[in-house]
Computed example of a mutant assay.
Amino acid sequence: MEAADLAICHLETPVAPPGGPYRGYPSFAVQPEILDALAGAGYDLCSTASNHSLDDGADGLARTLDVLDAARIAHSGTYRTETESVEPTIVDAGGVRVGHVAGTYALNGGGPPAGREWSVEVAAVPDVTGMLAAAARARAAGAQVVVASLHCCLEYDNDPTEAQVAAVRALLASPDVDLVLGHHAHVVQPYEQVAGEWAAYGLGNSIAEHATRGYPTEDSVMARFTFTRGAEGRFTVTRAEAVPLQIVVGGDDVTVRPADEANFDRVADVLARRGATAAGLDIVQG
């Protein structure tokens, strides 16, 4: 992780105050120490828009962003103020200005509180108008690359829904978006190249413990994309990689390790379902 010029995570849940009280499914408030661990692992930026963004109310949303700031992890998708909601998230990655936008298909328990609609970027998938506007603001503010993180649509299905595909294609059709990363399914979904640009529909879980219910929720994949500046000055993906991983739950420990042969083959099969390997995706051992 630390070797990456930019490492992006998705933070699904709001954090509780130090010492708790903590809550699990279905309405989360998790240990704030997680964010120090993310920083220590090498993450530079996290998307925060998910169906759980307001599980701990507006206070939990603001607390989460405060703790991310303290850990020096950039973020996008949720906002403490209306002014903050229209300020582009742009970070330096190896001397390149990278913008990031994020949105979620829905919120648990309905939308944001009245008068605070700006607090979470909710996309009425396949309509991603708000995310496209944010990407345009990032580009206008000087971003040389813009990455979009989309939290949607159907859990525990290895194949994206029609609405999910339409939303991803709408994002990639914009001149302001260069790459789409997806999550929410809690299982791995395919990569796809669309008109020369890449999307990873669903990366599975990273550090998580789930009741599997027969689904491969302990399969995961780390996405790696290499951007290169072309002769005309625009950056494009010149190498797309996927590293299959597996989550191992045992006793008090939850760890992530390179996928064993069975997990690797299962993940590789899913990743290739939409023509990604033929388009040049490298599926590599961790």
Rank of each mutant, 00 (worst) to 15 (best):
R266Q: 08
G230S: 11
E84H: 13
A262I: 07
G103W: 07
A223Q: 10
A124I: 11
A74L: 12
L6C: 10
A240Q: 00
T64F: 12
Y79V: 09
T104M: 06
I90D: 00
T226N: 05
G230N: 03
L179V: 01
D66G: 08
S220W: 03
L38S: 07
H183M: 04
L65T: 11
A58D: 10
A74T: 06
P175T: 10
G202K: 00
V254N: 11
L203W: 01
G109H: 12
G233Q: 04
V15T: 08
A259C: 05
V122P: 09
G109K: 12
A279P: 00
R72H: 14
V96I: 13
L281G: 02
A272I: 02
G202Q: 02
T83W: 09
E117D: 14
D282F: 00
A102H: 09
P175V: 04
V256R: 05
R72F: 14
Q31E: 09
E155W: 06
L45K: 03
V243Y: 14
G99V: 03
N158A: 13
V254L: 09
T226Y: 04
R239K: 05
R23H: 13
R229G: 11
L68M: 12
P258L: 14
Q31S: 11
G130Y: 15
E192F: 01
A16S: 12
L150R: 02
A133S: 11
E155R: 13
H100Q: 09
L61Q: 10
G42S: 07
D176T: 04
L61D: 07
V98C: 03
A123S: 11
G204N: 04
D66C: 10
A167E: 02
A223S: 13
A39K: 15
P190T: 02
R116P: 14
A133D: 14
D56W: 13
E155P: 12
P258V: 14
G230A: 06
S27H: 11
P17D: 14
V120K: 05
A74M: 10
A231D: 11
L38T: 04
G280E: 02
A29G: 11
P244Q: 05
T48W: 06
A114I: 15
Q189A: 02
A170S: 13
T217L: 04
N51Y: 12
V147C: 01
A138W: 04
H151T: 08
R116E: 15
E2Q: 08
A143C: 09
Y215T: 12
G103C: 15
